[in-house]
Design a protein around this nucleic acid. Structure first.
Lengths: 350, 350
DNA sequence: CCCGGGACGGTAAGCGCTTTCTACTGGGGG
DNA sequence: CCCCCAGTAGAAAGCGCTTACCGTCCCGGG
């Protein structure tokens, strides 16, 4: 039925071993022989049987990429970057790798399930993107799974999340805390004193770090007191931002700024404010986080923190293939850049 | 080293065949035996060797998803939908499948390369998303590759693109022509008479169909004359929209509406207009296409055509796994829905 | 009471490739 | 002039799994 190595071998008048060696280029084969083989491959339109070679060589060219939601550009950009990096053939032992993207939807069980599935595929590497769940049971389970993956020969890389305790998997992380501190500081500098915070879901590292940065800035300005009252939680979606802004306004009508955990939440908040006739930034300033492509086109253009998502993905890809050595402590930290745009201004009473 | 089927068999005191049968559930195994096997699997933390079973069974649980750019929500949403569908285990012969997403970046060569890579993996199915290149040589090459994939046992499904000539691969397509016609008609109904068009890249079905729909509406209103002069081409990116709008304004300062090939281009156009002090929609109306999530939060909220991207992806996923029979002609057409928002209004002189 | 057949389980032959290990060749140094 | 090695090629043993193909065992009908 399908063309096999053996068919090519016959056609080229050599042994299967030779064909394999030509195709993998890891053993000397005389020029003439090589050409004969290549021609046979061409003529028969031979395509290697991946599973068979994966089995025989105990390696595959699949790299798993775990994301919360690939439809979200935050993850899309990182996944795309990882893919573009691993798609390039390496010098030694490396045709292009394929990216298997797994949408966990933020569910810890699905995360574990996907890791098992990837282990089953004998993935060459696994990149975990996005914030981690801060749950001890899950952390243990995850550590176990990742450990087994690693001992099965897969490289494990974290991207956009902090290093995993008690492990030394390389990580490319964002300095969420500092970014959040800076953007809140920006608001404080403008003169804001009553700022609400729209936090992400509970028990996520990203959520916590951003919140901590925000609080740190408030504390430095002697404003820690009201922080808890003016913090509303939700998921990272637009409607959570909408609802959160409404709630915040109810709790503190005199609010002059809303700091959102990410751009999407910020947009939801903006929509809520607009619907209530609150002007941005004249009445209330709003900030986002991430600087996804749409932030600049929002109503109004969002002041936010730009995260180098693409670069992080590329680095993660390199680490995943061992093209780059991780630093001694295993952590590559990417800073964010404050992007001041039109959604922030001094408060009216300033 | 790694735990194998044989290890499990020994542990459970049965033969390897029995373990395989328990795991695949496609052959009667007595309850007691089954439990013993399952326990052994558990205790040894056995994980099937995917490549090995793929080799032996001549099937894999990989599904390829080709996209132009996974960072673009247009593709991200479809890819996510495909993935969620194929991630569900099927009744017979079907553990969850994994999605291999391949970023072609719109390059025909990479499209072919990825298809070869997927064939090498013996992918169970391949979903091609996004508009197709209208180039005869490429069409032939593509048809060939897809034919080989299909005869290698992979299902091929088109998603968001029209059926491929001379083939009968099922396709889930968007009615781009009608959507474009409707949105232009909307503008005409508002009284616009001088409309510019920001087209997508040459030789793409999507570009052509949307342009045709636009022109059809113009023709129906007796406005076909100026169409060519008021059409500017670019890629589907934001900066193309920006540049295109500038160009359009230069060609026709009296323009009252700009119809963009998609939301991203529309946003670029909006930015250009804003930078020139042109008000939207008072001075110029702008329309998008696709209704990506950010369209509603744009400045101003974009009038556009909503495409059921998620639904299309799900359908494509079902077709890819044979969970759904394609209609007789092989084409599932998804209509768009006109979303009238704030970026369109009657022209000032109306 | 015997036999046919359904329900299980085992045996073993591959699936298509990689990779030792072995074999052959020709040439240069002893 | 012979031996040995560098340079190539082949033979064959798996890699870990699936799946015919066969036995067994036990049941119920004739």
């Amino acid at each position: 039925m399908a063309v096999t190595l053996a068919d090519v071998a016959v056609r080229a008048g050599v042994s299967a071993a030779t064909v394999s060696r030509v195709l993998n280029g890891n053993y000397p084969v005389a020029g003439a022989t090589r050409n004969r083989v290549l021609r046979a491959v061409e003529e028969l339109e031979y395509v290697v049987n991946g599973p068979a070679s994966a089995l025989a060589a105990a390696t595959s060219d699949l790299v798993g990429v775990l994301v919360n939601d690939i439809a979200d550009p935050f993850f899309g950009i990182m996944a795309g970057a990882v893919q573009s990096e691993i798609g390039e053939p390496t010098a030694e032992r490396g045709g292009p790798k394929l990216a298997v993207v797994c949408n966990t939807g933020g569910s810890p069980e699905r995360e574990l399930t996907f890791l098992t599935l990837l282990q089953r595929q004998r993935a060459a590497a696994v990149v975990l993107t996005g914030g981690a769940l801060e749950d001890d049971a899950h952390r243990v389970a995850l550590t176990g799974r990742l450990g087994r993956l690693e001992s099965a020969g897969a490289r494990v890389v974290l991207c956009g999340r902090p290093p995993l305790a008690d492990t030394d998997f390389p990580a490319v992380t964002f300095d969420n805390r500092e970014g959040a501190r800076r953007i809140t500081e920006h608001l404080l500098t403008l003169g804001h004193r009553r700022l609400g915070y729209l936090a992400g879901p509970q028990a996520r590292t990203t959520t916590r770090h951003r919140l901590e940065g925000h609080r740190a800035a408030l504390a430095a300005a002697g404003l820690a007191g009201d922080a808890a009252r003016l913090t509303v939680r939700g998921d990272y979606g637009r409607s959570a931002g909408y609802a959160g802004a409404v709630e915040l306004l109810a709790r503190e009508p005199e609010l002059t700024a809303i700091v959102a955990a990410n751009d999407t939440v910020a947009l939801g908040a903006c929509a809520a404010l607009r619907d209530r006739g609150v002007r941005i930034p004249e009445d209330v300033s709003v900030t986002g986080f991430d600087d996804l492509p749409f932030a600049v086109d929002a109503t109004p253009a969002l002041t936010t923190v730009r995260l180098p998502l693409h670069e992080a993905g590329v680095r993660a890809g390199k680490l995943a293939l061992g093209r780059e050595e991780p630093p001694a402590d295993g952590v590559v930290t990417c800073g964010g850049e404050l992007m001041v745009r039109d959604s922030t201004a001094p408060p009216r009473d300033a």
